[in-house]
Amino acid sequence: MGALRRIVLALLAATLLPVLVLRWIPPPTSAFMLAARVSAFLEDDRQFRLRYQWVPWEEISPAMKLAVIAAEDQRFGDHFGFDWNAMAQAWQHNQRGLRPRGASTLSQQTAKNLFLCRSRSYLRKAAEAYFTVLLEAFWPKRRILEIYLNIAQFGKGIYGVSEASRAYFRKPASQLLAREAALLAAVLPNPILLRVDQPSPYLLKRRLWILRQMRQLGGTAHLAGL
């Protein structure tokens, strides 16, 4: 039992320490970025270039913050990492054999993107839940959203709202307009197939839906509750 206890304590320390450090320090990379680099190396993709530049909360357009909440997790400010209602609705939807629908919150997505791989195993889902609890316990909501916006993928090799804003709109993230922020948020379910620079009719329709949701949430005043 002594050896088992030491192993458990070592695992707790190994997972808790980076969460505590990243509460104040910008992450230099993420698990998803590292995986992208490895994949490009193994495929000998010499055209691949990873773009990532941290930008603090104050230098991100309020419209961008609201857009991802409207698109991905409208109860973000109210839950502790898990939206049980959305999960139940997604399960019922998927049971009917319709197009699969996810219910991951921004907290879960941040935990997965930052620390884990893309596998769909039960072990990965358990690790995601564990890290989600840690993030909610030790980070304020603003920090979770700040890191999510900085590590989310917006295109091939493009990570974070700063690089996405410069790549697609040639402006800093602080100057993003609502329609631009909504378009960036619209690609988040699949930033490889859904392209900001070549928006499909589906993507443009999704942008309009996000803009409506942003208004229904009360505009950027909604962020005051975070």
Rank of each mutant, 00 (worst) to 15 (best):
L203W: 00
G2K: 09
V187I: 03
L20G: 10
G81D: 05
L145I: 05
H93Q: 08
L98D: 12
G218W: 14
L135C: 09
S61W: 02
E136N: 14
R195N: 06
D44I: 14
R46S: 00
I60R: 05
L134K: 00
I7G: 08
L183T: 04
L208T: 14
L20Q: 07
R170M: 04
S104D: 01
P191T: 09
Q175A: 14
I151H: 01
P140W: 13
G219Y: 14
E43R: 15
K125L: 11
H93E: 07
I60T: 11
R49G: 12
L183A: 11
Q95R: 13
A126C: 10
R118Q: 11
R96V: 11
L123I: 08
V8M: 11
G77A: 13
L123H: 09
D45I: 11
S107K: 01
R46E: 00
Q198R: 15
Y130T: 00
Q92H: 05
A224S: 15
Y130S: 06
F131I: 02
F154G: 06
V55P: 05
A111F: 09
L149T: 10
A90V: 14
N85A: 15
A3P: 00
L98W: 13
I147Q: 00
R124T: 00
A224M: 13
R49M: 03
R195V: 07
V55R: 00
I60E: 04
T15F: 12
L177F: 08
Y148F: 07
A13C: 15
W84G: 01
R49K: 14
L211T: 03
I151L: 06
A70M: 03
A127K: 12
A186L: 04
S107Y: 06
G97S: 11
I210F: 07
R142L: 02
H79P: 03
M214H: 06
I158K: 01
F76S: 07
M33H: 10
R118E: 02
N190C: 07
G219P: 02
K65C: 06
Y148Q: 02
I7V: 07
R6P: 05
E58H: 01
L16W: 10
F80M: 04
R46L: 08
A90M: 11
E43W: 12
N190M: 07
R6T: 12
V21K: 01
R212F: 05
L226E: 01
W84N: 04
L12E: 12
V19W: 01
L208G: 13
L17W: 07
L208V: 07
Y148R: 12
T105S: 11
D78T: 12
A40L: 06
S174I: 09
Q92L: 15
G155E: 04
L17H: 01
M87S: 08
R75Y: 06
E146S: 09
L188M: 11
A88S: 07
L9R: 14
T29V: 13
R212P: 02
I7H: 10
R215C: 00
Y52Q: 04
V55G: 02
Q74T: 08
F82W: 12
L16R: 02
T220H: 14
E163C: 02
K112Q: 11
Q95A: 11
P201V: 05
H222Q: 05
A35T: 06
R118Y: 11
